[in-house]
Design a protein around this nucleic acid. Structure first.
Lengths: 116, 116
DNA sequence: ATAGGCACTTCGAAAATCAAAGCGACAGTG
DNA sequence: CACTGTCGCTTTGATTTTCGAAGTGCCTAT
């Protein structure tokens, strides 16, 4: 810490970074980060995501997709068929997060022990 | 065969990014991201973190610190006083995550609606 | 007609998180 | 010395989240 500071730096954003907190009120929910990451290679349907992600339950996936859409990170597009198909895709805001996710993935490869 | 995809290699690696999944099995837990972020400006004690983070309960903070330590992202250092004091600090692996967290924080400021 | 896929929703059970209180050690005050 | 307060946790229910399996409605292929 600061060696010679009589002042309180506590009021700074040093600790309690509001933006990070905000980000993790989303990303800190199970699967939301992975869902976003799964969308980076292009739009996908519900079932496709469900199978790709492996471990997430339908109900939670549904929740996460709804919440991410509500937050404007992804969009739900319905293509009236006749075979009606639904697809989820990243918005600009969602895309903007991809570099960070890629960085996290790279970090995990280097610094996170393998599962097992 | 499916009407849309002529061929999906997508299922292979693009989706289901293992590293990202691994990362979020940690960061996807409530508060772990914020705890790490709080440590980026230097070591801190339990009570200090507890107050800085605002919202986390002691029991969860305790859990997160233990888990992050177990994963090698932070270290717990005890300074035998007499006034015994404990402090938590980022390891190299933990430090290596900071750029990503900063990027996420920046992203949140630009793309995440304010708390309200 | 039977079977299967898609996009979800519903439901009960298990797990995670919460807020509050408690504990042992120590320090400061009167 | 008793009393209050801080630190670093742990324990104890209550509340919330997540899980996993099954069900629904629609459409298509056999």
């Amino acid at each position: 810490m600061a060696t010679t500071s009589p002042r309180t730096e506590v009021d700074e954003c040093a600790r309690g970074d509001a933006a990070l907190t905000r980000a993790f009120s989303l990303l800190g929910k199970r699967w939301s980060g992975v869902v976003l990451g799964s969308l980076k290679s292009g739009p996908a349907g519900f079932r496709e995501l469900s199978r790709a992600i492996d471990g997430v339950s339908d109900s939670v996936l549904s929740d996460r997709l709804a919440e991410l859409a509500r937050q404007g990170l992804i969009v739900r597009a319905v293509d009236a068929g006749p075979p009606v198909s639904v697809s989820y895709a990243l918005t600009d805001a969602g895309q903007a997060l991809m570099p960070a996710l890629e960085q996290i993935a790279r970090w995990a490869q280097e610094h996170l022990p393998e599962p097992g």
